[in-house]
């Protein structure tokens, strides 16, 4: 039974711990940056903090002339112009919400990949959750009904046949 000793009950805690340590190690490895060297440093495009915010916002805004891409992904001329607008406005101290409002005022809700909650989009936002609730409810009722009706019983003959069938086929199954 040497195979089983490893899986003894007390070891479960350290399995979890070992996993956590391993995870931290992997993550920790990448957490720090190095000192810079003698090679000349390249300049970041714009202010990295603004850039990060602009990209995040840009990914939520739809490019109007593309098939279906955000302005952050698209190479289209207009997408570049709009990205620059986003950058400039964020740099000028505007909030994400203000920049969104600026674009919606000009291009409409179409530019938002996250449609705002309005009368016309209620079904969109609550629909999935209504589906789940309805599904769970229907399942619950079906199971209750099933339990009330009870199991159909097999005739003696059927049971014997099924038994014969299973003996030959189900030896490996236990789950």
């Amino acid at each position: 039974m040497s195979g089983n000793r490893f899986f003894a009950k007390g070891t479960r805690a350290w399995q979890g711990f070992a996993l956590a340590v391993l995870l931290c190690l992997f993550v920790g490895r990448f957490g720090f940056a190095q000192a810079t060297g003698e090679v000349p440093q390249a300049r970041p495009v714009g202010d990295p903090a603004i850039e990060a915010r602009a990209l995040k916002l840009g990914h939520e805004l739809r490019c109007l002339v593309c098939q279906n891409q955000s302005i952050a992904e698209s190479n289209a001329e207009l997408a570049h112009d709009l990205m620059n607008q986003v950058r400039e406005q964020l740099a000028a101290g505007k909030s994400e919400e203000e920049v969104r409002a600026y674009l919606v005022a000009r291009y409409g809700d179409f530019v938002l990949y996250q449609p705002p909650l309005k009368a016309s989009t209620v079904a969109l936002w609550v629909g999935p959750f209504v589906l789940v609730l309805a599904g769970v409810l229907a399942l619950w009722r079906a199971l209750r009904r099933r339990a009330r009706e009870g199991t159909p019983t097999l005739s003696a003959d059927e049971a014997a046949r099924a038994e014969a069938l299973l003996r030959g086929t189900n030896e490996g199954e236990r789950s």
Binding site: Q34, T36, V39, P40, Q41, A42, P44, V45, P48
Partner: peptide, 16 residues
């Protein structure tokens, strides 16, 4: 992510 303007010979650092 880092977007940089690089001239040949220049270096940039990201995540170590």
């Amino acid at each position: 992510r880092l977007d940089v303007k690089m001239m040949p010979g220049e270096a940039a650092e990201l995540a170590g």
